[in-house]
């Protein structure tokens, strides 16, 4: 039998893994973004000592490889009596780790916004939270879209590390298929192709945000000129 045929006959395994990867990635990326927006709000409007502590945690997290962090949650914490299954540990790791990166991107972008806009929002009766949600955050997303997009792709790639802590995602599935039927080329090429496809979709989305930003004069080229 042709190797591609073998793979085709076991497509359920690969597609099942791909579905797991998409769920891990999609849920984590969205949750991480929401968490990061709250972190940034806390850093910017919370009390100073609290903000410093949060920033310290964010900076520290960004100095860790994702896998050692996942190890910490999955293998390390049970010593302290905190036990997660691999999926839960994977979700927690992806969400909190990438929230730190998103938070740093958003915080850095916020620093480039003029303070007048926030002031105008206050003068028009916005509460702090509403001002953040309606005036600040949309601009942060538009302005930082390419950088956020890169981070989202890194989040997608980091899901593959979870195969090491026994999560059955795409890479684990490809690995299982290849070792059972010895079709490493076919199995991994398809897996890489699926990762690539997903990242293309992410980039298309970022490009659309880019067009929206351009139309509003917040484009990256314009921003660069202004700087």
């Amino acid at each position: 039998m042709n190797k591609w045929e073998i793979l085709w006959n076991h497509r359920e395994m690969i597609l099942g893994g791909f579905k797991s990867t998409l769920v891990l990635f999609g849920v984590s990326a969205i949750a991480a973004f929401l968490l990061s927006s709250l972190i940034v709000l806390a850093i910017r409007t919370g009390r100073a000592p609290f903000g410093r502590v949060v920033r310290g945690v964010v900076d520290g997290m960004r100095m860790l490889p994702f896998l050692i962090y996942a190890y910490l949650l999955y293998y390390g914490l049970p010593s302290l009596g905190i036990r997660f299954d691999a999926w839960t540990a994977g979700f927690i790791a992806l969400i909190t780790y990438h929230a730190a990166y998103f938070a740093e991107i958003l915080r850095g972008t916020w620093a480039t916004l003029s303070t007048g806009q926030a002031e105008a929002a206050r003068a028009h009766g916005f509460t702090t939270f509403m001002m953040y949600r309606r005036i600040i955050l949309p601009q942060l997303v538009l302005r930082a879209a390419p950088v956020l997009g890169n981070q989202v792709i890194i989040c997608l790639k980091d899901t593959a590390f979870l195969s090491i802590i026994t999560v059955r995602e795409l890479t684990a599935a490809a690995s299982a298929v290849q070792s059972q039927y010895f079709i490493p080329f076919e199995a991994f090429i398809v897996a890489i192709g699926l990762y690539w496809l997903t990242s293309m979709l992410i980039e298309a989305l970022v490009a659309r945000l880019g067009f929206a930003a351009e139309r509003k004069g917040l484009g990256y080229k314009l921003a660069a000129v202004r700087r």
Binding site: I153, L156, K157, D158, T159, A160, F161, S163, I164, L170, T171, A174, S175, Q178, P184, F185, F188, I189, A191, I192, Y195, W196, T198, S199, M200
Partner: peptide
Amino acid sequence: VSLGRATPLVTLVLFIFVGAPL
């Protein structure tokens, strides 16, 4: 470059290690 950006290293290293001998 586009593939390099999108491919997880775990997947790539398995691919290269298992695939190259073939």
